[in-house]
Structure formats: structure tokens, C-alpha cells
């Protein structure tokens, strides 16, 4: 943490960046996002296990962009989000400085290539617990899964906290906000909730960087991240493609291979 704070002080003092987007202590033992603009306030920055939020989400916020060039205290998921956003032309090279924090170390990553290398060196599979979680649902039969999700979605409020928390949901006008026709129902009834969650999962397919913020943000504890994770696995298994590893290139659903599998197609 000290390394992070002194790095932050240095970056602000030398005006290399105008703002450090990082974590500070919040309420209820949580961490919260903080936007440090003065070197003197760098001591507010913390980094520990409570720092989970994917701060890359703030790149879609105009008030944050207006603060100037930012350094972002980046979790591994945030680094992947930055690369995916770069691949989707939402961030340009040089617009931000990523500060990868690990233990007591701070690794400044100024270019996308540096971020790519950093991510690649630490890349790995899901943890045993994460795999188990997904497998638990697959082990349920079709009917049990159906009942599970029906119950889950019956509690959805359509507050769109999942969408707001996701760094890859940056559309200035979301599909649900278009009427003529109102394609996804606005009211939070069971069918509308199912359709919204399906839409969200599909629009993130091939793009989600698996930060889990959607599930964390949900005020009624729906394990939304499972939908995204299931599709991450599908995209990787079938197309061999993973988001958030390169600052260039099309994502899985905006490209194709002539020999993509089609054993289910008659």
C-alpha cells in the first residue's frame, strides 16, 4: 500500500496524470472508489482484499473523463477490461496509466502492450471453487435449473445495477432504453426480467472479462455472474477465444471461422 501511495503522490506531483482512480475505505468494511487529484490526499488510497470493484467502469463516465488523464489502480479483471475496451475502440493508447497492484508492488503499465504482457504472464484458469460453482448448476437437471432461475429472476428489480457496474456496458443508449418498439419490457415482471437478463448475457458474450461485479452489485443477490461465466466457457471451449487479452481484434461474436462447429444444425 505504501508503494501505491508514494507512486500516486509522484504521478500527481509530476503531473503525469491528473487523477488517480483507486480505492479508499468505505462503510461496512467495504472499499469504495476514490478519485485523488491532489498528491497530499494520496494517503486515502488503500488496496486489500476488499478492493474488488472493477474501476475500469469509470471510463464510460464523462465527469471522470473530464478530470483529465487518469491512473487506474487495476485489479487483474480491470486490466482485462481495459484491454477489451481498447479492442472496442473505447480507450486510445496513452489515455490512461494502469497501476497493477500485487502484494506490496505497484507495476505501472503505460501501454496496451505492457498490459497485455502483464495479463498474459499471470493468466490462468478459473479457481477450483469457481469451476465447482458452475458445475454445481450444470449438475442440476434442466428442470431444477429452470426452477432456480425462475425464482431468481422473480426477485429482479430491473434496477440495472448489473449494467451500471459493468465496464463493458458503455452504450449511451441501452437496448432497453429504446422504445418503438419496446423490445425488452420495462416492468420488472417475471418475463421482463428473464428477457433482460438473457439480453445482458448475450450482449456481453465474447466480451465479458469475468470481474463478477454484476453479481456483486445486485441488491437482491441474484448470481448474475454465473450467466456470464457460463458463456465465457462456451466461447472459449467452442471458439477458443477469450476477451480482455489483447487490445486489438474482433471479439468472438463479431467474427467467425468458416469451419465453426455446427453439429447441432441439421
Amino acid at each position: 500500500m505504501q508503494a501505491l501511495r508514494s507512486k500516486a503522490r509522484e504521478l500527481l506531483a509530476t503531473k503525469t496524470v491528473q487523477v488517480i482512480i483507486g480505492y479508499a475505505s468505505g462503510g461496512g468494511g467495504r472499499a469504495r472508489a476514490v478519485f485523488v487529484r491532489e498528491a497530499a490526499k494520496a494517503d486515502a488510497l488503500v488496496f486489500d482484499d476488499s478492493c474488488q470493484q472493477n474501476l475500469a467502469v469509470y471510463f464510460s463516465k464523462p465527469e471522470v473523463r473530464k478530470l483529465g488523464k487518469a491512473a487506474l489502480v487495476a485489479t487483474p479483471a480491470a486490466l482485462r477490461a481495459i484491454l477489451q475496451l481498447a479492442a472496442e475502440n473505447q480507450i486510445a493508447e496513452g489515455e490512461l496509466l494502469a497501476l497493477a497492484v500485487g502484494g506490496d508492488d505497484v507495476v505501472p503499465l503505460a501501454t496496451f502492450a505492457a498490459i497485455e504482457a502483464h495479463v498474459a504472464a499471470r493468466d490462468g484458469d478459473w479457481s477450483a471453487a469457481e469451476k465447482e460453482e458452475l458445475q454445481k448448476y450444470e449438475a442440476m437437471g434442466l428442470e431444477e435449473r429452470r426452477r432456480f432461475w425462475e425464482e431468481q429472476f422473480s426477485r429482479c428489480l430491473k434496477c440495472y445495477a448489473c449494467r451500471a457496474a459493468c465496464p463493458l456496458c458503455y452504450c449511451t443508449r441501452c437496448t432497453v432504453e429504446c422504445n418503438q418498439p419496446q423490445w425488452i419490457p420495462v416492468p420488472a415482471h417475471d418475463l421482463g426480467n428473464l428477457e433482460w437478463n438473457v439480453m445482458r448475457a448475450m450482449h456481453l458474450a465474447g466480451r465479458c472479462v469475468d470481474c463478477g461485479d454484476c453479481g456483486r452489485a445486485c441488491p437482491v443477490n441474484i448470481p448474475l455472474h454465473l450467466l456470464n461465466r457460463r458463456l465465457i466457457r462456451e466461447v472459449f471451449t467452442v471458439f477458443g477465444s477469450r476477451s480482455g487479452r489483447s487490445a486489438k481484434g474482433d471479439n468472438a461474436l463479431s467474427t467467425f471461422k468458416p469451419n465453426d462447429p455446427e453439429d447441432f444444425i441439421q
Partner: peptide
């Protein structure tokens, strides 16, 4: 602006 920098504009607060 200062108060709301980290706010993401979801509806959680209004709904609960």
C-alpha cells in the same frame, strides 16, 4: 460532482 463521482446511475437506491 464531487459527491457523485463514483455513482454509476443505477436504480438500486430508489428501488430499495
Amino acid at each position: 460532482v464531487e459527491q457523485s463521482l463514483r455513482c454509476l446511475g443505477c436504480g438500486a437506491c430508489a428501488y430499495v
